[in-house]
Design a protein around this nucleic acid. Structure first.
Lengths: 257, 257
DNA sequence: CGGACCTTTGAGACGTGTCAAGGCTGGTGG
DNA sequence: CCACCAGCCTTGACACGTCTCAAAGGTCCG
């Protein structure tokens, strides 16, 4: 609960949001104003036993049989894949309020893993329960659909990042996206420091670059767009020039307001 | 109807598959054996007015309001995005039997376009009708879910291609994947030429490389894995060494048999 | 206080992009 | 039926950005 001088909170001791502030509800609400029953259903979905894990721990591993869906309550996680020779690709980044894989249980085996990027709190929702909620709440079901379509859109944008954008554009775009998504769930405010647990190696494995190069890019990003980076913290001082550098257009995130 | 000496068929004159051979049904069947009612429903979905278009024409453009889903009957199409300065990224390739965007109509606007890579035949299914079919056929609904989860998995694999694999591995992997998918819908057989309408520029825009480099890579691919390429046609003579070059593992395609 | 993990910095190699010219091929129109 | 043209592919030379490898410094946690 205490906050350190630099605005960070000590590791592993950040409090879990109360139900009233659930990031999940904030996020679905950004798609369409939820009715009271839908909101209540969303709250109930998240109101269950909290699990926790440390940075680097897998929530699910490649080859596992997927039985349920994870909802991130607090902290960051990622979806990733490892090639035979050890190369790692980060396929998605999850922040509080994000849902991992609506409906994966249709598949036989996971083709990738999900692990914690920071100390993490999450809940697990079983297939059956998920289906009951959707059947009983068409509006919630639609909101969950929307969330999964947005994830797919982000996935596509990441391909554009890796394949078309210059490294400088790509890193700026990634920061823009995360900053935007954090704002939606009220975890970032203009000009203030944000909790940003990606290491340079994580960013490298996200964009397909090398860690030393990320180090140099972050220095340039600071010079050209006043992005102050240090381990676990980031401040965006000049959002306009950052967006300009990235060629960022938030339409692909499909937020209506 | 005629077939040219090299195994290709003349452009724009390839016959449309009869219902009995529907690639769409073949594909869903590869997930789980469909019951007769589910199979009949799938056939009915595809049995409607055939639309056609030429290479380069858009079926849907970025910014359009998505109202319906497209099912590819014959020919290839792609999903793509264009950046402000003209760079193009191909985000997905559709072959016969593929469905574009189950449930997109939840979103307000398309964030990308879909266009034909070759002369194309497709059908359009409206939201309402799609929902009716799913409500009435849980097994079909589940199969469509599976298809959309597989598309998402392919999307992730393409990020690995662009970000982690060497250009040689990436192009080999792309060929492996398309060859595999074509086999599922019975459009390719071992050692025989396949219809392959991607130009070198298309491949470049898929993998994030340049067209001259694709030219050189295809020559190396021919040398190392006996992949015979020429415009609109490709023959895989040595699938094993191709897979080896690519580090290809088909698990991510989630075919059960 | 010690150690693991993360970041910074440097020098050199190499792969891929860029630019450009020329050749081929299939489809179109005369 | 032939000629032409647009689109597509091949090839070459050169530049440059990013990777590789490596060593050292910093910081947080136990």
């Amino acid at each position: 609960h205490s906050v350190m001088a630099d605005g960070r909170k000590p590791f592993g001791r950040r409090e879990v949001p109360t139900l009233a502030l659930l990031h999940f509800v904030e996020k679905l609400n950004a798609f369409a104003a939820l009715t009271d029953t839908a909101r209540q259903a969303a709250v109930t979905l998240a109101d269950r036993h909290h699990r926790t894990c440390h940075r680097g721990e897998d929530l699910i591993s490649e080859g596992d049989k997927p039985r349920n869906v994870q909802l991130i309550i607090d902290g960051w996680a990622c979806r990733y894949k490892i090639l035979e020779d050890g190369r790692r690709q980060i396929l998605a980044i999850f922040i509080p309020g994000d849902l991992c894989d609506l409906n994966v249980y249709i598949l036989d085996r996971m083709d990738h893993s999900i692990s914690a990027i920071s100390p993490l709190t999450y809940v697990t929702i079983e297939q059956q329960e998920m289906e009951q909620f959707c059947d009983g709440n068409p509006q919630l079901a639609r909101a969950l659909w929307w969330e999964s379509l947005v994830s797919a859109s982000i996935q596509r944008e990441w391909l554009v990042n890796a394949a078309q954008r210059t490294p400088m554009e790509a890193i700026a775009h990634l920061v823009c996206e995360l900053y935007f998504r954090l704002r939606v769930v009220k975890l970032a405010r203009k000009g203030e420091p944000i909790f940003f647990p990606l290491t340079q190696t994580d960013i490298a494995d996200t964009l397909g670059l090398t860690q030393p190069h990320i180090s140099r890019l972050l220095q340039m990003l600071n010079k050209h767009a006043k992005v102050a980076w240090r381990p676990r913290q980031l401040i965006v001082h000049d959002e306009d020039s950052l967006r300009h550098l990235a060629g960022f257009n938030p339409d692909y995130l499909h937020f209506r307001r």
